[in-house]
Design a protein around this nucleic acid. Structure first.
Length: 435
RNA sequence: GGAGAGGUGCCAGAGCGGCCGAAUGGGAUGCCCUGCUAAGGCAUUGACCCUCCGGGGUCCGUGGGUUCAAAUCCCACCCUCUCCGCCA
């Protein structure tokens, strides 16, 4: 949620920033929100005025009763009752306008950082790092899609996954399952130096998904467990960001850096039939996510660090990769600035998004009500609080890295070599063969 | 799932429908006393919203209701704890 106060202090600035997202409807919403905000303050002022009078009359009434003057109290009571009627009318109107404003604000995306490149869609995302370790040509035996190699090696059984759960579910078997788990362990170990490992719940509340921005706008993308008013978490970003919801942190404990291995559940509404072969897109996948709570000053440095960590993971796996920056027209609704890490898969001949690292500003913290307090130079707590900044990024998303390994590490005989850094997690296996 | 107890400020904990944004104790901060320490004295100490910067408003788990007036009465829900049941 953007800062409501900006609507009155810098409406033109908000409109200018959001116009870079290349969706004119947003600007209309902003203008509408500004009108509602002004209306709301008028109602509030009027309502508070009446409440102030009711409060003071009530005090007088109490005093008069104690002084044994019930007649005078009677007159005041009548006046107060009258005011009460007016007040409840205003309250009704206030609730109505404020609900409408909140709905509108929840749908307005975050302001892009000024450094975010302009652009209309994903075709305009500039490559900012790389390509690294990318070859101009690949031998024939690496030009085999991973689903073919995986089928031949018996390490991926999506047909039976469909029997169990329906289409767009994957199931790894044998060394393929071990490889998936090895990647998770590797992803965690790579980042354990500064991140606390968390194992959060997979089913989360409506409030939790609203805080990170998946709700209310993208409800169709998440699995709902309606009977219990829970949702299957689409990313560990959601539970990790709500860990400190409704809390006031201390600037001395920031940044707080967390990581979690979790399963992510996505309905992928509207994308049926696209990129659905093999491991490219599925309803459930494993991922190691990083998340940080920070002061506004710490955030840019943490963003860089997170991008480097995502990069380091694919570099350590010796996969061809590049980093792109997401342009204003392609950024996610909550994002202030974002980078994607992509690996090259020679079999599918495609760059696969394996990580997305984002700085959310205070957009999520405002929704989740996560604040922090500062200390002055003498170590004394300063009065008041402000919203924290949040950042998150995938340390390692299993399926596409798994696919890229199966394609890049395919040998001429159809076997797949295990990348060196994964050896410790593979129970001694260094190569996946058909038997 | 059943029975019971409870949710109040940084913490503990009191609170007759009006004198309650809230006793008391602890903690924290400042000042005083003391050679230092220990101990003591005094004072301060919540958040948020609006503001014509005078002030006004909201918040005692959440949401409703009763009343001129609700932390206090009524209803619903949520959460925590104890016991029982079930269970990986």
């Amino acid at each position: 949620m953007i800062d409501q106060r900006l609507l009155r202090t810098d409406l033109d600035g908000v409109k200018a920033a959001l116009s870079r997202r290349n969706r004119p409807a947003i600007i209309d919403d902003v203008a509408h929100a500004a009108r509602l905000d002004a209306r709301l303050r008028d109602i509030q002022a009027e309502r508070d005025d009446i409440r102030a009078r009711v409060n003071s009359i009530s005090k007088e009434v109490g005093q008069l009763h104690r002084d044994g003057k019930p007649d005078e109290a009677q007159t005041l009571q009548a006046e107060s009752k009258n005011l009460g009627g007016t007040e409840s009318g205003l309250v009704g109107e206030y609730d109505e306008v404020s609900a409408a404003l909140r709905d509108l604000l929840l749908g307005i995306p975050n302001l892009p950082h000024e450094a975010v490149p302009g652009g209309a869609n994903e075709d305009d995302n500039p490559v900012v790092i790389g390509p690294i370790a990318h070859h101009s040509t690949y031998p024939e035996w690496q030009r085999v899609p991973h689903w073919e190699t995986a089928a031949a090696l018996g390490i991926l059984d999506n047909e039976r996954a469909a029997k169990i759960s329906g289409s767009m579910f994957t199931m790894q078997r044998g060394a393929g399952a071990t490889l998936a788990r090895a990647l998770c362990q590797f992803g965690l170990d790579q980042n354990a130096d500064v991140h606390e490992e968390v194992r959060p719940p997979s089913l989360v509340s409506t409030a939790t998904l609203t805080a990170t921005g998946q709700l209310p706008k993208f409800a169709d993308d998440a699995y709902a467990i309606e009977r219990d008013d829970l949702w299957a978490s689409p990313t560990a970003e959601a539970p990790l960001t709500s860990i400190y919801a409704n809390e006031v942190l201390d600037d001395t404990e920031l940044p707080i850096r967390l990581m979690a291995h979790s399963s992510s559940y996505r309905r992928e509404a509207g994308s049926a039939g696209r990129d659905t072969r093999g491991m490219l897109r599925s309803h459930e996948f494993d991922k190691v996510e990083m998340m940080a709570y920070a002061t506004p000053e710490q955030a840019p440095g943490l963003l860089d660090d997170m991008v480097q960590r995502s990069e380091r993971a694919v570099a350590a796996l010796r996969l061809p990769y590049r980093v792109i920056e997401i342009c204003a027209g392609d950024m996610g609704q909550s994002h202030h600035r974002s980078f994607d890490v992509e690996v090259y898969a020679p079999g599918a001949d495609a760059w696969l998004e394996v990580s997305s690292v984002s700085w959310l500003g205070d957009y999520q913290a405002r929704r989740a009500n996560i604040r922090f307090r500062r200390h002055d130079e003498n170590g004394k707590l300063i009065k008041g609080s402000e919203f924290a900044h949040t950042l998150n990024g995938s340390a390692l998303a299993v399926p596409r890295v798994w696919a890229a390994i199966v394609e890049n590490y395919r040998n001429e005989d159809g076997s797949v070599t295990i990348p060196d850094v994964l050896h410790p997690y593979m129970r001694g296996a260094v190569r996946i063969t058909a038997d």
